[in-house]
Design a protein around this nucleic acid. Structure first.
Lengths: 143, 143
DNA sequence: GGCATTTATATCGTACACGATTTAATCTTG
DNA sequence: CAAGATTAAATCGTGTACGATATAAATGCC
């Protein structure tokens, strides 16, 4: 017996995650940002002025991915990057005016995506929790 | 009201897909292949001698991603790439001896992953189907 | 206080993803 | 049967991911 991608739960997650990014793409194109950049901004919209590490823990990315991504956001004038005066090892990321403005421009995205998913809020929440539980189980085993 | 990544179903999928890849990594490292390469090989193990396009439809990737990936598999002596004599536009991908051997070496991976997921087969299947349905709904809307 | 250890980012190399374009082969239609 | 349309791969450019390593600042411990 042999599994092909359509049978695999890993492939379901892999292809669904990509399809989700495609669903976001036209909405994010209007804002001039990518999907991982949107995740980072969502973190900053909830709480501004965070370190690279703090952001990374929330989006589950390390500095090797975040540093270039944040530099691109900085180039676009969306965030500022500045060494912390107290602890020079840390870099504090802050939203610019433009970064704040994007929050407003992005306000309808979650609703759009829920619509596009074809799920009720309750179903989406239930599925999210199942997928999150699977992720956390996989991550815990890995340690 | 504002959603942060932990609230988003897109982030659940995104981070679960990454966690899944991490769960596969130690197993695939032993075979010397990556996770997308494993997906492609799973397709070929089910049915050898397919075109780039046919493989792409199953793993949902286009030639811009597959061509370099297949070239790397060819460099490793795992597949061969040859223009179809009947239709020179197409490139036929075939498993080498080594490519076949990997199927045997990889035979325990699905069981390992199911174990690591902490789900029963029934739960995994149910979750897979829900996630697949979501993906297909997102993809259909996109057209 | 000075040196080893730890911590926070950054850098580098490799491998996806994917939009856009290119190239070459086949098909279609007049 | 020839010109245009279509199809299949490949190429190019940009942006993630991530392992491994580097760098520099802060901390711990004698």
């Amino acid at each position: 017996m042999h599994l092909t991608p359509p049978d695999m739960i890993c492939f379901a997650l892999y292809s669904a995650a990509h399809a989700m990014q495609q669903a976001y793409k036209p909405l994010l194109d209007e804002l001039g940002i990518t999907y991982p950049q949107y995740l980072v901004l969502s973190v900053l919209w909830a709480q501004d002025d965070q370190t690279v590490g703090a952001i990374g823990r929330q989006v589950q990315l390390d500095s090797n991915t975040l540093t270039p991504l944040l530099k691109r956001l900085q180039t676009q004038g969306i965030v500022s990057r500045e060494r912390d005066a107290q602890d020079e090892r840390q870099v504090r990321i802050r939203l610019t005016e433009k970064g704040y403005a994007l929050r407003y421009a992005a306000r309808d995205i979650p609703g759009c995506i829920l619509d596009r998913s074809g799920l009720t809020l309750a179903d989406a929440t239930a599925l999210r929790d199942k997928v999150t539980a699977l992720r956390d189980h996989l991550r815990d085993e890995g340690v």
